[in-house]
Nucleic acid binder design. Structure first.
Lengths: 193, 193
DNA sequence: GGGGGAATCTTGTCGGTGGAAAGATTCGGT
DNA sequence: ACCGAATCTTTCCACCGACAAGATTCCCCC
């Protein structure tokens, strides 16, 4: 493994290179307008190379989304372990959305993602488990009678805030010039009364 | 007004007809994949007719989104006046997202919408005003110290739930077979806990 | 009532995109 | 060294968004 090929035909790890180029491309033009051909152009390969590794465009986006769910799971786990605070876990969720806009913009787009992708589903489930665990350990059922309801509510709150903020619906209206971190903390604070 | 033209050249109210056909089309394939040409095909006009009325594809989606914000404002206003309950206003928000998936899926997509569209901005501001008023009259500042923070939190909660539900991230996981209305009510209930 | 300008809609065209098919090149196991 | 398999390229087709130019109809004003 790891042998670097000097040939121009075999890339070595083209799949990894394509993914790394796809993220900034998606960040620029959005997952809907990110084209496989432009991705191939930026990576310096033929326009059909991406299709070989990802099948089709939904396949590429599924790989990005799966990577995003794994990154998100890491962030939530780290926030849970280091702070033990539900609010900080929520802030970590929002920070992930702002730090990785391309991933976040791809992860919740069923119209662009394949309907049933095993690795995507697995990554999504892993992140869901981490999130449920985080809510359980930091807010042991004080949010609602049913702990699952509390988890859904906490998830909805931070996810909605991240979505609204990154869609540009919030700034300029309610809070003219606010730091998203501070605003996120205040909003997440609603969870703890 | 209202004179029906028997000619095949002038439609009468093609703009309205295009919008009415665009909504189910978007509901089927999503706002990103909804094509002006398929829309023209379904409406029985030439492939360039939509561009005449909406300029380009972002222009069409802006019209759909603006219609959606007006519909949403009506729903929120009605819920505020008839129930006076913050939870029911939240449920109305979720119901709107589920009842009008095409509109909702279009409204918060800055990558597909024109950056500055006067009628869209106006409709969005109207809906924002109604939402802020609804939160103010039904929960007079009990959510957070800053009433604007409370409004953002309430909005984030219901928007996040609607987004997560319609993206398919929720069902099957936390709540195997749940009625979205009931789950929305339980989640929104966290606000008045 | 009849011109004439303007609005509406069509036809034709161009570059770009996704996807499939088939071929060229290289890798890796035996 | 060989041969199958994986990787990547080339070629091709249908569809899409956008633009330009032309055809048709409406409506207002004289």
């Amino acid at each position: 493994m790891g042998t670097v090929s000097s040939s121009s035909y075999h890339h070595g790890d083209l799949r990894r290179a394509l993914l790394d180029q796809a993220v900034p491309l998606i960040a620029e033009v959005g997952p809907a307008s990110a084209s496989l051909r432009e991705l191939a152009r930026r990576t310096g390969v033929s326009h059909a190379a991406p299709a070989h590794h990802f099948g089709d465009k939904p396949g590429l986006l599924a790989a990005v989304a799966a990577e995003g769910f794994d990154l998100l799971a890491d962030r939530l786990r780290a926030a849970t372990e280091t702070t033990g605070s539900l609010v900080e876990v929520g802030v970590a969720y929002v920070r992930f959305a702002l730090d990785h806009p391309a991933h976040f913009a791809t992860m919740f787009r069923p119209d662009l993602l394949p309907e049933a992708d095993p690795v995507l589903t697995a990554a999504r489930d892993r992140a869901g488990d981490v999130l449920h665990a985080a809510v359980a350990t930091t807010a042991g059922g004080v949010l609602a009678e049913d702990p699952r309801t509390g988890a859904v509510a906490a998830w909805s709150l931070v996810h909605g805030f991240a979505t609204l903020w990154s869609s540009g619906a919030l700034p300029g209206r309610s809070h003219p010039d606010a730091d998203p971190d501070e605003l996120a903390r205040a909003v997440a604070g609603v969870l703890t009364r």
